[in-house]
Design a protein around this nucleic acid. Structure first.
Lengths: 158, 158
DNA sequence: CGTCAATACTTGATACGTCAACTATTGACG
DNA sequence: CGTCAATAGTTGACGTATCAAGTATTGACG
């Protein structure tokens, strides 16, 4: 069997071959996600918010009644302390509102503001186009297969 | 055709379905990579180094003669300034050595120390096992397919 | 009803990453 | 050979993330 040198090995200029496809897969996954992240950052940060802030806004857009801080934290993969300050910054830019919960006064209900919605709206076309472009090396059937495999990895490791 | 609600939608508790598999794929990729990253961090950080520092050590292990800072930077996806300080911290822990280059005195040649190699050696079994476990929800053939698809995405977007 | 653990944050200390200057060195060009 | 742009790396300022500890509120239990 001829020794194939993978793209990944060339990218890393590593003399040693990967021991297993699993090892190669993990590295490939991390590198690919980094690439996607950078591409999305290029689109989003010029508009004055970080990718994380953008993600929070999108989550809030999906929840008409707003969400308590911790619920947002569960949906992102972020600790609450970081979120408090991230929300501080979003609030300072008037992209979200926060109000102490009526029923449970420990909670803070966060809602996206009109300005936040407007910002997302201007970003939507570029982000959607980027998503399409980034995954365009795969056919639609492959894209579905990819999503399926990634879901398997996540549900097998949660 | 019956409306399928993907795992991803449930994970995000998003009422709205994804517009396209590409959009879903990008989010899935980012979430999955985050999960892997956290699992690797759980293994590595208790040993006193961060995941990034670990990655640098692995790169240096692969280069017997050491590497200049910028070359490391190219192989990670990190800017030079961050690397300088990351290397400062690794050097403070005596896991790497740095010497001004002889031929080009602007360069700094970084080499992994004996202690660095020893640390990697103690981490290797756990990291290798984690890689296997993390991708174990996929069969080996699927793992190869995944690597191939991720490579396609990267080479289509570099 | 009072106590006390659990919950939902918030704040402070610290670490890390990034951008923008800055220094040292190199290499090309007149 | 001298100048000057390019390169390699460092440093300072800043934004953000994380851990630990603190505050306010809730809910269960005696």
């Amino acid at each position: 069997m001829k020794q194939r040198i993978s793209l990944l090995q060339r990218e890393l200029s590593q003399p040693k071959p990967f021991v297993s496809p699993a090892q190669e897969g993990v590295v490939a996954l991390l590198l690919t996600a980094d690439l996607l992240r950078r591409r999305l950052i290029e689109i989003i940060e010029p508009h004055g918010i970080t990718l994380q802030q953008y993600n929070v806004l999108r989550i809030l857009r999906g929840a008409d009644e707003g969400l308590p801080t911790m619920t947002i934290g569960e949906r992102m993969i972020e600790q609450t302390p970081g979120l408090t300050r991230l929300l501080d910054r979003l609030e300072a830019k008037d992209l979200v509102h926060r109000v102490r919960g009526d029923d449970d006064r420990r909670q803070v209900r966060c809602t996206i503001s009109a300005a936040g919605l407007a910002l997302l709206k201007t970003l939507d076309p570029a982000v959607d186009a980027a998503d399409e472009r980034l995954l365009s090396p795969l056919g639609e059937k492959e894209q579905r297969k990819l999503v399926e495999m990634l879901e398997a990895i996540r549900s097998g490791n949660s």
